[in-house]
Simulated assay, not measured.
Amino acid sequence: MDYFELTEKLDRIERLLASNKEVLTFEETCEYTGISRSYLYKLTAAREIPHSKPNGKMIFFEKKKLNEWLLQNGRKSKMEIEDEAIKYTLKRRNGQL
């Protein structure tokens, strides 16, 4: 096994371990979300993303709240919109509205 393969396996192990954590550090959050350090800092400074600063220095993120924040303002797929339109049409035809 060469150096590149070993480094790649270690990176995968680190990502797997981080994915099981409930609380993430600033750096782990950047890697988990794909958000750059500067933009994540901007979001925390503006209090636009849920985070904690227990001692006033280090920043931590609860994974559950982070996932909720990432998934806010969801967009429906074309299939979901079409299904809703069909259901609405059927209700109107049956006089349920």
Score class of each variant (00 low, 15 high):
L16M: 12
K64D: 01
T33A: 01
E80G: 01
S52F: 14
F4E: 11
L97G: 08
E82C: 06
N73F: 07
K78W: 07
I49T: 06
D83T: 13
K78Q: 13
G74Y: 15
P50C: 00
D11C: 13
L70I: 02
I86A: 11
K65F: 07
L43G: 02
T25D: 01
D83N: 14
K87L: 12
C30S: 10
F26R: 00
E8V: 05
I35W: 07
S77F: 02
T89C: 11
K42F: 14
S36D: 07
K91E: 03
S52Q: 11
N67Q: 11
K64I: 06
Y88M: 09
L24F: 03
Y32F: 14
K91T: 03
E22R: 13
I35P: 01
Y39G: 05
G34E: 00
N55C: 05
Y32L: 01
G95L: 04
K76G: 06
N94Q: 13
E48K: 14
I13M: 14
L6V: 09
N55S: 12
K42G: 08
F60A: 06
P54N: 02
N94F: 14
E80P: 00
D2T: 15
I35R: 01
N67L: 04
S36R: 13
K87V: 12
W69A: 05
T7K: 14
T44H: 00
F61M: 01
K76I: 00
T7V: 15
R15M: 08
L70S: 00
A46N: 12
S77N: 02
E5K: 15
Y88S: 12
N20R: 15
L70F: 01
T89P: 04
L17H: 15
M58H: 15
K91L: 08
K42S: 13
K78A: 09
A45D: 10
C30T: 09
A85I: 05
L70K: 07
N94A: 13
S38P: 01
L70N: 00
E68V: 07
L17M: 14
I86D: 05
T29V: 05
L16F: 08
L16I: 13
Y39V: 03
T29Y: 05
F60S: 02
Y3N: 09
Y39E: 09
Q72G: 02
K78M: 05
T89M: 09
W69D: 01
N20V: 06
I81K: 03
E62Q: 10
L71C: 10
A46K: 10
L70Q: 04
K42N: 11
H51K: 00
E84L: 08
T29Q: 02
G95N: 08
S19W: 10
E84A: 12
K87P: 03
T89G: 15
T33E: 03
